[in-house]
Computed example of a mutant assay.
Amino acid sequence: MEWTGARYTDKPAVEVRTWIDAPPERVWAVVTDVEAMPSMSDELESVEWLDGATGPAVGARFIGRSKHVALGEWATTSHVVECDPPRVFAWAVVDPDDPAAIWRFRLEPKDGGTELSQWVQMGPGRSGLSLAIDRMPEKEQKIVFVRMREFERNITVTLEHIKKLAES
C-alpha cells in the first residue's frame, strides 16, 4: 500500500486481512465486543456503550478513550453506521455525517473459516491529527503517512488478537 503524497482531505484508508479458523458467527462475537477492544490495542484505553446500548446496532453509540505518545489523551464518541450480522460492523468517529474516521470489520466465510478484514478511513471530519497538521502544514503528507502506518500496524496486532480469541 502506498500513502506517499496523501493529504488528510484525500480521506486516506488502509485495510488489513487475515483468515481465521472459526465460523463467522464466532468471529462476529469477538469483533462486536467493543468493550474488549482495549485489551487488543496499545492506543485504546477503554470503551463503553452509551445510552443504555449493550451491543451493536445501527445508531448505537460508544465512547472510546485513547492515549498516544505524540497525540496525548482523548475521548471520542463513535456511532454504529453499519451492522449486518455476521458480515459487517462499522462505526463513524465523532460525527456520522462528517466523521473524523470510519472503522469497518468485514467477515466472509472462506475455506471452512472466516476471512476477516479491518479497514479504516481517516477524515474527512477534523480529528486530533488535524491539530498536528494545523501546527505543521508543510509536514501534512508526512504526518498522514506516519499515522496510516501506525493504523496498519495497530490493525495487524488487533487482527492477531481477534484470531487467537476466535480460534480458542
Rank of each mutant, 00 (worst) to 15 (best):
K164H: 05
A29T: 01
R147H: 12
W28I: 03
D10C: 10
R17C: 09
T114L: 08
F105R: 02
F105W: 12
E82T: 10
A75Y: 07
W119S: 01
W3F: 14
S130R: 02
D97I: 04
V144M: 09
V58N: 09
F105D: 01
Y8S: 01
D95T: 12
R87C: 12
S39Y: 04
P24F: 05
I102D: 04
L131N: 07
E25R: 14
K11T: 15
T158E: 08
V146K: 06
I20M: 01
R126K: 11
F89T: 03
P85V: 09
V27Y: 02
E140L: 06
D84T: 15
V14C: 08
E45I: 12
T77V: 15
S39H: 11
T9K: 05
T158Y: 07
S78Y: 07
T54D: 13
K67V: 10
F151R: 05
R153N: 13
R26H: 04
A53L: 09
Q121W: 01
A22H: 05
V93G: 11
K164E: 10
L44H: 03
P124I: 09
I143Q: 03
S130N: 10
K110S: 14
L129Q: 03
M40H: 09
M37V: 06
V94E: 15
R61V: 12
F151I: 05
D134M: 02
A57G: 07
V58I: 13
G5H: 00
G64I: 04
E15G: 04
F145H: 15
K142Y: 07
S66I: 06
E160F: 02
A6P: 00
T9L: 01
W49I: 05
V157H: 15
A100Q: 14
E115D: 09
R26W: 03
W119P: 00
F151L: 11
L159W: 04
A70Y: 11
G64Y: 01
W91C: 10
P12F: 05
S46R: 15
K67L: 08
T156E: 11
V80M: 07
G59R: 09
T114F: 09
D51Q: 11
D21W: 03
A13K: 09
A166T: 02
D98Q: 14
I143S: 03
G113H: 07
T4E: 00
R65P: 08
K163T: 02
W49S: 08
L50V: 06
R65C: 08
E73P: 06
S46W: 06
M1Q: 13
T158C: 04
H161E: 05
A60L: 04
R26V: 12
P137M: 10
T77W: 08
V34I: 11
R61Q: 14
H161D: 04
V14A: 07
G64Q: 06
A60H: 13
V30W: 01
V14P: 01
E167N: 06
